[in-house]
Design a protein around this nucleic acid. Structure first.
Length: 559
RNA sequence: AGGGGUGUAGCCAAGCGGUAAGGCACUAGACUUUGACCCUAGCAUGCGUAGGUUCAAAUCCUGCCACCCCUGCCA
């Protein structure tokens, strides 16, 4: 058990928790991560899961992973499996994995019968349309169902008949008896059980009635012993109903408490599940794990480290204020993490051939530091020789001001190798540059340079015999930058075609040092002076495909 | 008089009656065998707004304004 005096609240939820712990309203912090297994997680869900896990951890508590699977028509066991993998990737281990269906359906049914006997619920024969009509509006009260005051014994029998399959879908419902005039529409005798003749991925055909979220969720929390149910702000209006169930229906001593916080939104990022699903189904992307998606699987495939996601979410704090965070705030954490961890390599994305005219021997070995910023320094080898490739943009015939790279007659340092000087430009018949003729300064090799020559710039290169061709996939934002909130734009009538950025996937070829042939799927690298890249799962032995996770910051080209 | 929320810099966000933390972005500069990273400096006489209480208000009180969410037998 932790000492409360040693804990400082870092957000309003932790303040509330400390109050409850001090007052004795709760004695420990047990939270839950309750996904409905009906789609893939995205970064918005990550905030919820991370919040539940981190909060419990801070107070010495723990977290359950609970599949909130009360709607068989939307759910699928494959998703449940994917959540366990995603959670593990994020670095969290739930105390236990629970399927609400399997673990709680029986208990919830019992509780519903008890409610009926206590006069707190009734079987209603109104149709869905009739329920909507009698519910009232935002500004007017609803009217009582004509079945509201039927005897408990009659409701009980009918409820048992519902369970026994004697009713068709939609024919009857079980409703909580609360208040049809409540200003909170959720309290106007909400449906708590519906008839649904559907096969559940977990419980099969055992049930043909299923509990509704507002009834099931508080009971699941209570049954599990969850003390703090941390969810997003869209459930704020449901809290009175949550509390009603806990205080009027639940008989246990433990009283879980729901606290809501604002969702995470990213500028220009499309997250809505149904829209992503449509893009997947229409083959507009490579799948749920498309690197342009901010789904967990998409981010992972793109090469974004789990730690960067956690750092980003924790850095943003927890409040109830609506926020739309610029991608640059996330990118900062991606770069920070990758800078710490990614192995450096030299890759020429847009090659320009250079012949070192005074170098005639076989290629020689050079050493490349894997990560100068790492605690332990390791290296790998590459080569330097007569024929090399540099980036097109690292040579200029008409250099702009402060251009520190190679020019005709100028010098530049080749990273980890020699200083070279450009003496001549050889053109093709069509007038384009064919290759550069340079000389190297033999006494300037990295690590043993005694020349004292200073150059303004250093560029990367790949020596011909040490190079192999790879495929590069670069990504633009999936949607046009005109739309700050793409989901809202779609909801307000913008078509998907208008919303999508054209050619947001750009494929090209590059020359990489052979060291990268050791790469495994998912390995991340910094291609020096360019950016961070990750070996994609589509790679084959003959075609290495690297996804560009993110570029390095570039303060030169920006100016 | 439906109800529930939220307003602190371009974007997040601390602050809880004692005179506006921090981060991102941005701008300058330093350093550099990655124009990255690291480092230094700058960046709100102002806290949605109008009053009030107080020696003192982003913090307390009152009114107003703006924006978001809620009428599934979805979660």
């Amino acid at each position: 058990m932790i000492n409360l005096d040693e804990i400082t609240a870092s957000n309003f939820i932790e303040e509330e928790i400390i109050k409850d712990l001090k007052s004795g309203a709760q004695t420990q912090v047990i939270t839950r991560c309750p996904p409905e297994p009906s789609g893939y997680w995205h970064i918005g869900h990550c905030k919820a899961w991370i919040t539940n896990f981190e909060t419990a951890k801070k107070f010495g508590g723990y977290t359950y992973l609970r599949m909130d699977d009360t709607n068989p028509t939307k759910e699928d066991g494959d998703f449940a499996q994917s959540y366990m993998a995603d959670l593990e990737w994020l670095g969290y281990t739930p105390k236990k994995v629970i399927y609400a269906s399997e673990s709680y359906f029986d208990k919830m049914y019992e509780i519903a019968e008890q409610m009926i006997m206590e006069g707190k619920a009734y079987v209603c024969e109104l149709s869905a349309d009739e329920i909507t009509q009698t519910r009232g509006t935002l500004t007017t009260a609803g009217v009582n169902s004509p079945y509201r005051d039927r005897p408990a014994s009659e409701s009980l029998q009918m409820f048992r008949d519902m369970k026994a399959g004697k009713y068709k879908d939609g024919e009857v419902t079980l409703r909580a008896k609360i208040d049809m005039a409540s200003p909170n529409i959720n309290m106007r005798d909400p449906v708590i059980y519906r008839v649904l003749h559907a096969t559940h991925y977990k419980t099969g055909d055992k049930w043909c009635i299923y509990p509704m979220y507002d009834f099931a969720h508080p009971l699941e929390d209570a049954l599990e012993g969850v003390t703090f149910s941390l969810c997003d702000i869209s459930f704020e209006d449901h809290r009175p109903l949550y509390d009603w169930v806990i205080h009027n229906v639940w008989k246990g001593e433990n009283k879980p408490r729901q606290i809501e916080f604002a969702q995470l939104n990213l500028e220009n990022v499309l997250l809505g599940k149904r829209y992503l699903k449509r893009l997947v189904n229409e083959n507009k992307v490579m799948g749920w794990d498309d690197p342009r998606f901010y789904t967990i699987v998409g981010m992972k495939r793109r090469g974004i480290p789990a730690q960067a996601i956690k750092n980003f979410i924790c850095a943003n704090g927890l409040t109830k204020a609506k926020s739309i965070i610029p991608l640059s705030a996330f990118e900062y954490h991606i770069r920070e993490e990758l800078n710490r961890t990614a192995t450096r390599a030299m890759v020429v994305l847009d090659p320009l051939k250079v012949v070192i005219t005074n170098y005639n021997g076989a290629p020689e070995t050079i050493e490349i530091e894997n990560n100068q910023n790492a605690e332990t320094h390791t290296t790998h080898t590459a080569t330097f020789g007569r024929e090399i490739f540099i980036e097109q943009e690292d040579f200029s015939l008409n250099p702009p001001p402060k251009y520190n790279r190679l020019t005709l007659g100028g010098t530049v340092r080749l990273k980890n190798a020699y200083i070279i000087k450009c003496n001549n430009v050889v053109y093709k018949e069509n007038g384009e540059i064919d290759y550069l003729e340079c000389e190297y300064l033999p006494n300037t090799k990295s690590g043993q340079d005694e020349s004292g020559i200073k150059v303004k710039g250093t560029i990367h290169f790949v020596e011909k015999s040490n190079g192999f061709e790879v495929t590069i996939r670069e990504f633009k934002n999936l949607t046009k930058l005109d739309y700050l909130e793409p989901s809202k734009a779609l909801a307000s009538g913008v078509s998907i075609e208008d919303l999508l950025e054209e050619n947001s996937l750009i494929e090209s070829k590059a020359i990489a040092e052979k060291y990268l042939q050791n790469a495994k799927i998912g390995d991340t690298f910094q291609f020096m002076r360019k950016g961070y890249y990750c070996l994609d799962k589509d790679s084959t032995e003959n075609n290495y495909i690297f996804n560009k996770t993110i570029s390095l910051k570039d303060t030169f080209n920006k100016k």
